[in-house]
Design a protein around this nucleic acid. Structure first.
Lengths: 153, 153
DNA sequence: TATTGTTATACTCTATAACTATA
DNA sequence: TATAGTTATAGAGTATAACAATA
């Protein structure tokens, strides 16, 4: 835990406990790695939101615009513009849903799928901080976080 | 690791290894927790960047605008507007530096410090996924990530 | 009537380039 | 000349509200 974090928790007179301590370092980790995500997206001329959209759109599994809005946790009106720009680049496409003609399904094009694959490969490159850990630590980290994710949220 | 992630790595014919696997779950964790950050900031009528700015500005430790630009990894020209809006709300203030009159130092006001304290307390609330882990896992997670952060990046 | 996606509007964030005031 | 911060500009992300097409 950083000195700043420690000072902050002591200012509020909390007795942190391991959950808060673990979350504090995780937060700091997420904070430091955010710019990595932005940079990786920029390498493919994608904004962060565009990159998120592309990674969410699994090939062979079209989703509705509203579903994407939920995944991005933004208003549905934003999705129109985001999809417009990705579609203009030929990375994704809108298709009408068969059952409900109000719904438009989103799917990656072959070009989009190729870019998506390269983007994911780039994003999955472990940063130095993780690569430098012992293999024991790496496995433990993987297993603990997997358990956390399985409990959802 | 999620099925999607596993499929992605197998598509590129990589043998992941524990570093990549640990990073993959960490990435997924990062993705899921991002909206939490946005929501927490919004509870205080702060945009994500405004929240980041406020958390970076430690009371008693003013920093230059250019330093903040670096911390936010954005262009210096953006900082002007971000600081303008926070200053208009009375949360931070610009002070001239004694040595170099070109430089403006940023400091939180007492009002800003109070908001900052509440924001940090809110951000530091561990999510269910972490709170539900065993104390052994929580301690191990804290220790491993601390080691990773100490190696920088 | 309710829902999906769009449009209109307004604000914020972002980068680039040109500017100012200092150094 | 170089640097710190500002301004001007343009594009993109964001939310709210009003709207069209469909259910």
């Amino acid at each position: 835990m950083s000195q700043a974090t420690r000072r902050e928790t002591s200012q509020t007179n909390e007795v942190p406990g391991p959950a808060a301590e673990a979350w504090a370092v995780l937060l700091e980790f997420l904070r430091r790695q955010r710019s990595r995500y932005v940079e990786a997206a920029a390498e493919f001329d994608l904004s962060p939101v565009q990159a998120s959209t592309l990674t969410r759109l699994e090939p062979e599994t079209p989703i509705a615009m509203s579903t994407l809005a939920g995944a991005l946790s933004c208003d549905a009106s934003n999705v129109t513009g985001i999809v417009d720009r990705l579609e203009a680049r030929g990375l994704i496409e809108r298709k009408s849903a068969d059952q409900d003609r109000r719904v438009k399904m989103l799917a990656v094009t072959p070009k989009g799928a190729r870019l998506r694959r390269r983007l994911l490969a780039r994003l999955h490159e472990p940063p130095e901080s993780i690569a430098a850990l012992s293999r024991t630590d790496q496995r433990a980290l993987r297993d603990i976080l997997t358990r956390a994710l399985e409990r959802n949220s």
